[in-house]
Design a protein around this nucleic acid. Structure first.
Length: 273
DNA sequence: CCCCATGTTCGACA
DNA sequence: GTGTCGAACATGGG
């Protein structure tokens, strides 16, 4: 279930092993996770210490001695956890780093995740000119406006899922954002009033910060005032309007919204008969 | 057997 | 070039 906050949570499951020396590796080298990196390349981590943990959007980076980086993506079903050093690899434990104290496990039964490795002094490979994620102050209104201007006709749901624009925002966060902003998922940047833009910017940041606060360190339960706990069950009810939530595929993903609050606004020219 | 799943990528198409 | 859509990836659950 990895979006921004879940990714942060999983990355820090390995925090207890900071400073550990990796002495042994386990992998399932034939799996899809290694499509961008042969499992043998991971041997370089042997006898190196885990020195730092970073996340950027849905990406996680683990730093080792001499600027070696292990970069992981959790895909749709990936999880990280730390187990005891005698951990016996499970069927879907596709990568395990063993130290004297811990087994650092990357488990992903669907294999949509990804393993990459690289060496770079400046930080995790390819992260140099990554756009700022919404929870950082660099994601200011000017930056946000530039994103809207670049894709005036794209539906908001699809735009929010674009990792180059909103790193870390995934399906449930995008729906949560649009619901709180009272905007229809099919609305476009061009259709927004100046005050709607201001609101959307503030709410994008709010949802990211809320998610990190509630889920990022503890994996707490999101409160019933969010859309989140209502969207999964069939026949969910909007906690604001009291009316049924609606489900529709938009931008290729199941999208949950509250028609009572999130009105479709279409230009007169697209109206039929 | 069917459908669905909190992600990404690629090719087809308007 | 802009956007959208469907399929594919691999596995499990309802």
């Amino acid at each position: 279930m990895p979006e921004l906050a879940e990714v942060y949570f999983y990355a820090h499951q390995w925090t207890p092993a900071l400073g550990d020396k990796i002495i042994r590796l386990h992998s399932h080298p034939q799996t899809r996770l290694y499509r961008d990196c042969p499992a043998t390349a991971l041997e370089v981590l042997k006898n190196r210490h885990l020195t730092t943990i970073q996340t950027h959007g849905k990406q996680m980076a683990f730093g080792f001695d001499d600027d070696h980086w292990l970069v992981l993506h959790l895909g749709m079903a990936g999880k990280l956890y730390a187990g005891p050093p005698e951990w016996a690899p499970g069927k879907h434990d596709h990568l395990i780093l063993f130290s004297d104290q811990h087994a650092l496990v990357f488990s992903d039964y669907r294999q949509f995740g990804k393993v990459q490795i690289g060496q770079q002094k400046m930080g995790p490979p390819q992260w140099n000119d990554a756009p700022p994620p919404p929870h950082l102050s660099a994601f200011d209104f000017a930056h946000f406006s530039k994103i809207l201007r670049a894709s005036p006709r794209r539906c908001l749901k699809g735009l929010l899922l674009d990792q180059g624009a909103f790193p870390g925002v995934g399906n449930w966060m995008a729906d949560e954002i649009l619901w709180r902003a009272r905007l229809h998922p099919s609305a476009t940047p061009a259709s927004l009033s100046p005050s709607q833009r201001k609101t959307l910017h503030a709410i994008v940041r709010e949802v990211c910060l809320d998610a990190l606060r509630v889920i990022g360190s503890d994996w707490g339960d999101p409160p019933p005032s969010w859309l989140f706990p209502h969207r999964w069950k069939k026949g969910g009810i909007c906690p604001v309007s009291g009316k049924p939530l609606h489900y529709e595929t938009i931008a290729g993903r199941t999208t949950c919204f509250s028609p009572a609050l999130q009105k479709e606004r279409r230009s007169a020219s697209t109206k039929s008969t």
